[in-house]
Amino acid sequence: MAERPSDRQLDLCGTPCPLNFIRCRLTLETMNPGECLQVDLDPGEPEEMVVPGLRRDGHRVDVERRSDVQVRLMVICAGE
């Protein structure tokens, strides 16, 4: 994925499920279609729960593995 600047950022490392998904969703509800939200998450269950949930909501989600302990999502807001 080409590096693009994000409009908003969330650092949710250490945030448990489903709170991390809820925070992503609430932030995206305040954003305009086409804006980019950068989300840093723990790998494993947080990634497995958040990515499909955001895609089900219609957002484009690109996943970048930053290290063994961090995953970065670049989420393009779909709007309503």
Rank of each mutant, 00 (worst) to 15 (best):
L26C: 05
P18C: 14
I76C: 06
S6L: 08
T30R: 07
P52S: 10
V69L: 13
P46H: 11
P18V: 14
R65D: 14
V39W: 01
D62V: 08
R8F: 05
D42H: 11
C36H: 02
L19Q: 14
H59Q: 09
R55P: 04
E3K: 01
R60E: 07
L37A: 04
P18K: 13
V51E: 10
L19W: 06
D62A: 13
T30I: 05
E64V: 01
C36K: 00
R55S: 12
P46C: 13
L28D: 00
D57A: 15
R4V: 05
E80K: 05
G44F: 08
E29K: 06
E45N: 08
P18E: 14
L41Q: 06
V51Q: 08
V61L: 08
L37N: 01
L26N: 09
R4Q: 14
M49C: 13
L28E: 03
P16T: 13
D7W: 04
L19K: 09
L37C: 01
D68M: 12
P5I: 12
D62H: 08
L54E: 02
C17T: 15
R23D: 02
A2W: 07
D40K: 12
N20T: 12
M1W: 04
R25K: 10
G79I: 00
V63D: 07
R65Q: 15
L26S: 08
C24G: 07
E3F: 01
G79P: 00
I22E: 13
L10A: 09
F21R: 13
C77Q: 02
L28S: 01
V69E: 15
D11P: 07
E47P: 00
I22R: 09
V61W: 02
M74K: 05
P46K: 12
P43H: 11
Q70H: 13
G58C: 07
F21M: 12
R25F: 06
G79N: 03
E47G: 00
E29Y: 01
L10D: 05
Q70Y: 07
L19C: 05
A2G: 04
R72L: 07
V75A: 05
G58A: 11
R8M: 09
L37W: 03
L41A: 09
I76H: 02
G14N: 14
E48Q: 14
S67W: 11
R56T: 12
C13M: 15
M74G: 02
F21N: 11
R65T: 15
L26P: 01
H59K: 08
N32K: 13
T30C: 03
D42Q: 12
V51W: 02
V39T: 04
E47A: 14
D62N: 10
P52R: 12
D57R: 10
V51Y: 03
G14H: 14
L28G: 03
L41I: 06
Q9V: 10
D57V: 06
